[in-house]
Computed example of a mutant assay.
Amino acid sequence: MNATHGGRWYGDLPWRRAQSTRDTHTAPQSLGTIGSQPELFRMRVRAMDDVSVAELHGELDLLAHARLTPQMDMLTRPERPAIVMDLGGVTFMDASGLRLLLRAQDRVRERDGTLDILPDTRWVAMIMRMTGTGTGFRLLERLPPRLT
């Protein structure tokens, strides 16, 4: 049991991108390093009663989409999954990141589950509204007290 979060962490999935000269000049601030490579995104999942809370951190871009899709598929695999995605740690999201969320939403609906999104930043909520995808998700203003 993790006393800080009131739940048990069962996944901490950091991913790294090989640095190139281009990355050195254009990449946003990394979340830290693993070895000599910056950690640009990760997903942490914790189980709280019957709900899985997935915290996404860093850049949700094409690389994150490719690397996180298998983990998202595992998260959305059970029958009637109940998932809350906390996007508070997301520093960048492009169409690939949005596609990752939409894929998770489709899989959850196929299994009669629920997927709630905690955008936590104005720009993530704005992107979802501008693209019309915000209406398909139930957007939360904050985590329910039992999940904090």
Rank of each mutant, 00 (worst) to 15 (best):
P78C: 04
W123I: 01
M48A: 07
P14S: 12
V90P: 12
P14D: 11
R44Y: 04
S52W: 06
R16C: 04
G11L: 15
L60K: 02
R107I: 04
M48N: 01
A125K: 09
H57L: 01
Q29L: 14
L13F: 14
G58H: 07
T121V: 00
Q29W: 09
L68M: 13
L40D: 12
L143Q: 09
W123P: 07
F137V: 11
R42W: 01
T26A: 11
E110I: 00
E55Y: 00
D23C: 14
A54V: 11
R77D: 13
L87S: 06
P70D: 15
R111Y: 01
G134P: 02
R8N: 15
G58T: 07
M130I: 11
L63W: 05
A125R: 15
G7R: 07
F41M: 07
T33C: 03
T33D: 10
P144K: 02
E59D: 15
A27N: 14
A104H: 05
G88T: 05
P119N: 06
R107P: 04
L115E: 04
R129A: 15
D12A: 08
F41S: 13
F41V: 04
E141M: 03
L100H: 09
G32T: 08
R142K: 12
T114M: 10
S96P: 06
R77C: 08
M74W: 07
D86F: 00
A64R: 05
D94M: 07
V108T: 14
R111H: 14
Q105R: 15
G89W: 01
W15K: 09
T133H: 03
E59I: 01
P145E: 10
V90A: 06
M130C: 15
L139K: 05
R138P: 10
E141L: 06
R46Y: 05
T69E: 12
G89D: 12
L87Y: 01
P119S: 08
L31C: 08
S96C: 09
A3K: 12
A3T: 06
M128D: 08
L143I: 06
I127K: 02
L87P: 10
Q71P: 08
W123F: 02
P28V: 02
E59A: 04
M72L: 11
R44F: 07
G97Y: 04
V124G: 08
I34R: 15
R80K: 15
Y10I: 13
P70E: 12
P144M: 05
G58P: 10
V45A: 15
A54K: 00
G6P: 09
S20E: 04
